[in-house]
């Protein structure tokens, strides 16, 4: 199809309102990365398995490779950049801090998606068991860590978040 009409998308990302004209087929992952230059959201498989592109849509974790940008019209999105509005210069989010402390990342490519999966998970499960953590992580693939230290990082983060 030639010259598909463009659609206007107004979307709040990390608290900021953006307005862009996009082709309807543009994936939300590409929109965030290439239209909004929020390259912290990574793309690993584009078929909804690896979880690297996970972002929050109205507070819930979703695969941004399985949503069209036009569908985000009028919605609220949070990406990994939204966890530290100053880019982490002052302080990391407690979850990020825990990942650093427990060596929960190596190459770091899957990490943003894992963080975004865990944010709502920890809200829903402030005291998660190891089994719950592993199940929560099972929709995000990591090829470097063997998950062991990610689990430790989540336990650490849960503790910090509980005790402030």
């Amino acid at each position: 199809m030639e010259n598909a009409p463009l659609f206007s998308v107004k979307v709040t990302v990390n608290g900021q309102l953006f307005e862009r004209e996009v082709e309807p087929r543009l994936l939300l992952s590409d929109f965030l990365r290439h239209e909004l230059a929020l390259t912290g959201t990574h793309v690993g498989c584009e078929h909804g398995v690896c979880g690297a592109c996970t972002v929050l849509l109205n507070g819930e974790a979703v695969r941004s490779c399985l949503i069209f940008a036009v569908q985000a019209h009028g919605q609220e999105i949070v990406t990994v950049e939204g966890l530290t509005p100053d880019g982490g210069r002052e302080a990391l989010h407690p979850l990020q801090e825990a990942f650093r402390e427990a060596h929960g990342l190596q190459c770091g490519f899957c990490t943003p998606g894992i963080l975004m999966t865990l944010i709502p998970f920890l809200q829903e499960h402030p005291q998660p068991s190891e089994g719950e953590i592993r199940e929560a992580l099972s929709g995000n693939l990591c090829r470097c860590t063997g998950y062991h230290n990610i689990v430790k990082a989540v336990q650490l983060a849960a503790e910090t978040l509980r005790h402030g």
């Binding site: 199809m1 659609f7 082709e23 309807p24 087929r25 994936l27 584009e46 078929h47």
Partner: peptide, 11 residues
């Protein structure tokens, strides 16, 4: 792995 173009309606 990018989708082909389509006409889009959001009723």
């Amino acid at each position: 792995m990018k989708p082909a173009a389509f006409d889009y309606h959001a009723p």
